[in-house]
Design a protein around this nucleic acid. Structure first.
Length: 220
DNA sequence: AACCAGGACGTGA
DNA sequence: TCACGTCATGGT
């Protein structure tokens, strides 16, 4: 029987050797990615941009999200307060390229209202999950990249790659897969390091999937 | 020309 | 709980 923890740890090092640090999450203030700078984000505005991107990128190409974010930025609407003031048609037009603009426009306003009402700097995962439009993956992306909390992000690429490696199943429960990664990596890294490892690992998985699975459905 | 992109939600079984 | 349809635009 394969030991999931061994596979998870080995694969992390292999991907890191292959691609190097990725510098997620991209921020417009830094002209995109920022490899080996784990001090970001530093402002509420940057955290809001990350959470906005997390919603816009749901089942959507990141290139399209960049265009939508740029449109919002040009409207000066990349803060919770300013985005909330946009009328819905303007907001929908700005994010049109990212698809699902009817739902996502509503999701973004909910998100903005949450950012304004909440005074504490770090929300809980459960609080994020209560918001419409934020499921488990988006919540973890926000916790990990916007709020620097140690939650490993499980996406479809993770399912594909590690089902191919024989340690998860495609339709396995999200929490079950996440637990395998947490269980594997918790004993190896201190809590302070864990956040960085989870940030890099998810980014490396996406990078690897983009290069190897994009445009074809065969895999090696 | 089908298929996919850094998913989430509502519904009916 | 599970399977399936829906949401929408653009690139390959």
């Amino acid at each position: 029987m394969i030991n999931p923890s061994t596979i998870i740890i080995q694969t992390y090092h292999e991907l890191l050797d292959l691609y190097g640090p990725r510098g997620w999450w991209p921020l417009s203030d830094y002209n995109g990615y920022h490899p080996e700078n784990y001090e970001l984000p530093q402002t509420k505005k940057q955290r809001f941009e990350i959470c906005t991107g997390a919603i816009l990128t749901q089942n959507t190409n990141w290139k399209s999200v960049e265009i939508a974010l740029k449109n919002l930025s040009q409207l000066g609407a990349l803060t919770p307060e300013s985005l909330l003031k946009l009328d819905n048609e303007t907001l929908k037009t700005a994010i049109r390229r990212a698809g699902y603009y009817n739902q996502k426009s509503a999701y973004l306003k909910n998100l903005a209202a949450f950012f304004i009402e909440r005074d504490a700097p770090v929300p809980t995962r459960a609080e994020l999950l209560k918001l419409r439009g934020i499921g488990e993956e988006s919540a973890d992306s926000m916790m990990l990249y916007a709020f620097k909390q140690p939650f490993f992000v499980v996406d479809t690429y993770t399912r594909r790659i590690f089902s191919h490696l024989g340690i998860v199943e495609m339709k396995e429960r999200y929490s079950s897969i996440q637990n395998k990664f947490h269980t594997a990596l918790e004993p190896v890294y201190k809590e302070n390091e864990r956040m960085k490892i989870y940030q890099e690992y998810h980014a490396l998985i996406v990078e690897h999937a983009k290069r190897n699975f994009q445009g074809r459905k065969t895999e090696g």
